[in-house]
Simulated scan of single mutants.
Amino acid sequence: MAIIQLSQLSRHYGEDETLVKALDDISLSIEEGEIVALLGPSGSGKTTLLNTIAALDIPTSGSYQFHGENVPLGHIENMTTFRRENVGYIFQFFNLLADLTALENVLLVQDLAGKRDRKKAMGLLESVGLSGLEDRFPSQMSGGQRQRVAIARALAKSPRIILGDELTGNLDSETSTMVMEALIKTCRKEKMTTIFVTHDQSLTRFATRIIHLDSGKIIEDESGGLKSIAMTAKHTAESVVDNTVDGVKKIGSKIKGMAQSMLE
Rank of each mutant, 00 (worst) to 15 (best):
T198Y: 12
E264K: 09
V149G: 03
A154W: 07
K249N: 13
I35V: 13
L19W: 07
L19H: 05
L100P: 01
S173T: 15
I151Q: 02
R153A: 02
V248F: 13
R148C: 08
R118W: 02
G247C: 02
N78A: 14
K217E: 11
F82A: 05
M180L: 15
P72M: 00
T80A: 15
P138L: 01
N95G: 03
I53E: 04
G164A: 15
I255Y: 11
K46S: 05
T168V: 13
S131N: 11
E181P: 06
D111C: 01
L96A: 03
A152N: 05
R11L: 13
L130H: 08
Q147A: 06
H67E: 15
L130C: 05
E134V: 01
R153C: 09
T194R: 02
L103T: 07
I76L: 06
S27E: 02
H212T: 14
H212I: 01
I58D: 07
A182H: 01
E69K: 15
F196N: 03
G45E: 01
V149F: 04
T80C: 10
K189L: 04
V240F: 13
I76M: 02
I218Q: 04
M79L: 02
I26G: 02
L163E: 04
I161T: 05
K157N: 12
D165A: 08
I184N: 04
S61V: 00
L73I: 07
L50V: 06
K234Y: 14
S139E: 10
C187P: 10
V149A: 05
L28A: 04
N78D: 11
K249R: 11
G68R: 00
G247T: 08
